[in-house]
């Protein structure tokens, strides 16, 4: 694990006392300015192999290059700043895309514009004992998708890849 910045800046008569966690992914070999997640004080640090080689030195009035990943206040019941709080901690870049929210996305066409099947609900197969054919009659089961596909075919814009 990397070194941390324990901010001791007096703010409003009290010590800030915030632990700013510097994750190895960004800070392992790094030189630059980091802000404190609570009071916003900007510190210069130079980190080598996860150890604080220089700093933290206060740089009042300067802008930070990066924010810590996460911060908490261990002396005040571990109140924490989670990743992704604008201006305090680093934006969490791995946030799921809007479509990955657990809600089924019933696409009717693949990324190259050909019809897919298998969205729900689906009618029963009407075969004996669950038997399915080797064909999904899209024209009969989803006429609207079939029509749209026909239009796409006619438009000539459909790509092979």
């Amino acid at each position: 694990m990397c070194d941390i910045i324990w901010c001791k800046k007096p703010v409003g008569g009290k010590t800030c006392n915030t632990v700013n966690y510097l994750d190895p992914y960004c800070f392992w070999n790094w030189e630059g300015k980091v802000n404190c997640a609570e009071c916003g004080t900007v510190y210069y640090i130079h980190m080598i192999q996860g150890f604080m080689y220089k700093g933290p030195e206060e740089k009042p009035g300067e802008k930070p290059d990066l924010s810590p990943l996460y911060a908490d206040k261990p002396l005040e019941g571990y109140r924490a700043y989670l990743p992704g709080i604008s201006g305090r901690t680093r934006p969490y870049q791995c946030l799921p895309r809007h479509i990955y929210l657990g809600k089924a996305d019933m696409v009717k066409f693949s990324i190259r514009g050909r019809p897919t099947r298998g969205w729900r609900p689906q009618p029963p197969s009407a075969g004996i004992a669950g038997q399915f054919p080797y064909k999904w009659d899209i024209q009969a089961l989803s006429p609207e998708v079939y029509e749209e596909y026909k239009k796409k075919l006619l438009s000539g814009k459909l790509k092979d890849w």
């Binding site: 657990g102 089924a104 729900r120 609900p121 689906q122 669950g130």
Partner: peptide, 18 residues
């Protein structure tokens, strides 16, 4: 991998499961 990547149906009697 993700909920929306399901293809339906799982089975004749379960059209809402994928």
């Amino acid at each position: 991998p993700f909920n929306e990547a399901y293809l339906y149906p799982l089975h004749d009697t379960r059209p809402m499961t994928g």
